[in-house]
Simulated scan of single mutants.
Amino acid sequence: MNNSGAAKGEKAAASDQPPPMAGSSAMEGVAGAALRSIIQRVSQAAERSGRSPDQVKIVAASKTKPVAVIRQVYDAGHRFFGENYVQELLEKAPQLPDDIEWHFIGNLQSNKVKPLLTGVPKLAMVETVDDEKIANHLDRMVASIQRKPLKVLVQVNTSGETSKFGVEPRGCVELVKHVSLNCPNLEFCGLMTIGMLDYTSTPENFKTLINCRSEVCRALGIAEEQCELSMGMSADFEQAIEMGSTIVRVGSSIFGPREYPIKLPA
């Protein structure tokens, strides 16, 4: 997904600028079939973890993908999609059916909160609340536009990488308490993380998020089943499900490689 590569300070300035979307007619015939394969793999992983497949939500991460390809996945019966860039979501959402459940899964800057919530009135969830400032901005804007409470996840930086966004694990409980107690227009639903690109380290990242959930649930006095875990992407979603993930964000395994513009030499 996003949140890897450049240092966090460098990324913050450009994190909401989407790359140009490229059309890809070659992909349009395969995305639906790829989705069916992912659903089967998710079902098998859920069963291995002793859970029902319907306890795991697949968010199809459609960053850089054209509306025509997203529509094919929609026509195959899928309704849960995630976007990383506000501008890209603002362009796509009006062209697609209203019953899509959109998740915002990229870093969200304060100045993008208003256009996101006003431009996508049926936004289902923001998975990337990582500090009190962004939580407060979301809370105030939800109240201002008088929409129903917005579901949010708190993003945790479980790898310790400076290139990743997210609250540090030791600050997770405090941030969750702030969202739960001081943001009445937000509905805290759980935690989210992005594993390291070195997937041999990912199990440790997932274990850290699981530990954070235990601490959060003790602090709030809620059952762990009430706290979602959004962890796992194309390369590691099966392992994440086996470890307890309830939301997986799958992009390239459904849509194919992301379509970034080719950079020509200067």
Rank of each mutant, 00 (worst) to 15 (best):
C217Q: 06
L150I: 06
A235I: 09
V216T: 01
S62E: 08
L229N: 02
N107L: 08
S24Y: 11
G77C: 07
S214L: 13
G23F: 14
M1H: 10
S245D: 01
E168F: 03
G50P: 06
I210K: 09
S245Y: 00
K8P: 06
D130K: 02
D139H: 08
A31R: 07
S180F: 14
Q109D: 02
S4A: 12
E242L: 11
I194L: 11
E204D: 15
V216C: 00
T162A: 12
L96C: 01
N84L: 08
R213P: 06
P115H: 03
S62A: 14
M243I: 07
L220Q: 02
A13D: 15
N136S: 15
S163F: 07
L90K: 03
P149R: 05
G77P: 08
S37L: 14
K65W: 09
L117Q: 01
L186A: 02
A14R: 13
Q226L: 09
G82Q: 05
R36W: 11
I254T: 00
V42C: 04
H178D: 02
P20A: 09
S214A: 14
C212D: 03
S253P: 10
D131L: 10
N2R: 12
P169T: 00
N182P: 11
I254H: 01
I100L: 09
V113C: 01
I262F: 08
L117P: 01
H178Y: 08
T162I: 14
P66Y: 07
K65H: 13
A235W: 07
G251F: 03
Q95E: 15
V67P: 13
M243D: 05
V176P: 04
R36S: 14
Q55F: 09
V179N: 00
S43P: 05
K263A: 12
